[in-house]
């Protein structure tokens, strides 16, 4: 998988333990929990999914293997929702 990049049309901001997303296309707001927020913030176009999983595993002090499939599923969902793109 290529590096992951947030859709620039999505407005977002960090709250204490979550990220709030605003999708102008359908005027929808979504909230990502703490782990989701980390993934989102890491999707700045400089990392691919493997590197993101490594970063998240360090941040939350868990083995990369344990979170790999959850993070990949989450990334795929964000791509399907057009919130993320492969750079």
């Amino acid at each position: 998988m290529n590096n992951l990049q947030r859709n620039p049309k999505i407005r977002w901001r960090r709250e204490v333990d979550e990220v709030c997303l605003y999708i102008p296309k359908n005027r929808e707001m979504k909230k990502l929990n703490n782990v989701g927020a980390s993934v989102w913030e890491l999707c700045d176009g400089s990392l691919d999914s493997k590197e993101i999983i490594e970063e998240v595993s360090k941040e939350f002090d868990v083995e990369a293997n344990e979170i790999k499939s959850d993070v990949e599923d989450f990334i795929n969902q964000l791509i399907q929702l057009d919130l993320l793109k492969e750079a």
């Binding site: 901001r13 709250e15 204490v16 709030c20 605003y22 707001m29």
Partner: peptide, 10 residues
């Protein structure tokens, strides 16, 4: 405690 966002959404 009342939970609220750091800035309003709307």
């Amino acid at each position: 405690m009342v939970e609220y966002t750091n800035s309003p959404e709307v």
